[in-house]
Design a protein around this nucleic acid. Structure first.
Lengths: 125, 125
DNA sequence: ATTCTTGCAAAGAGTTTGCATAATA
DNA sequence: TATTATGCAAACTCTTTGCAAGAAT
């Protein structure tokens, strides 16, 4: 993979944002200082960065794909109140994967877990 | 909601298939005996049937939406070998939801859990 | 010099929608 | 008769792709 300034900008954008940006968010934001940047380039680089495991893709049903700097296996919670999407890191996930694999006699290589509900902040305010 | 023959056909199709059909699969199949059926009608009815909780929608990342007659909360396993998509019904899921809600201090109303891996059949053959 | 990447625009897949007509209640 | 649903086609959103020009090795 050859170096490109565009790819560096895109990667840095994702690494510096905790809010799971979309391709279009990244494009619109970076275009301000890089008027020649094209949306195709953003898509192509997000795919490459995902394939090289520098970032992760997060797919929510009925929503545009989002990108995540958090590489560890984790779940997501979509809050119905504030609309935020937050990472859920927990040992419970690993326990769950292990016990369900054993119980169901299946092999789990990867998972996609999304909760709909209310985040900690909204729940306690 | 007014009765329609098209909606009945679409609902029955989903109820009689265990393989999580897509809108297009349903359309193509029903069109054989109902040449005037339109894809728009299929989409509109699948939305209505989902809203009235007669069927469920299953969204897999990067794949077309699928529809499911299994109304109980459950997970899915996508087998990397045979390509099948199977329902995972287990009490472990409920335990997981409860313990993670407590641990993270969040409220979970709904979930979307998809495993990638190897199904029981492929694993043991 | 060769290979990879870009910008641009067009095409693609899947889904939704506007509208006149038809069916249901 | 009033409301809801249909068929058809066009529109829409998100994403991918072909190609000639430009940048990196």
């Amino acid at each position: 993979m050859k170096y490109s300034k565009q790819r560096e900008l895109i990667l840095n954008y994702v690494l510096n944002h905790n809010d799971h940006p979309t391709a279009d968010t990244i494009y619109t934001s970076l275009k301000k200082d890089n008027p020649k940047l094209s949306l195709g380039t953003v898509y192509r680089n997000l795919i490459k960065l995902t394939e090289s495991n520098e970032i992760k893709k997060v797919s929510l049903p009925g929503e545009v794909d989002k990108f995540d700097k958090n590489l560890s296996p984790h779940a997501h919670l979509k809050c119905n109140i504030c609309g935020c999407l937050i990472d859920i890191n927990s040992l419970e996930i690993d326990n769950f994967i292990k016990s369900i694999s054993k119980e169901q006699d299946i092999k789990i290589d990867n998972f996609n877990i999304i909760f709909d509900g209310v985040c900690k902040n909204c729940k306690n305010n």
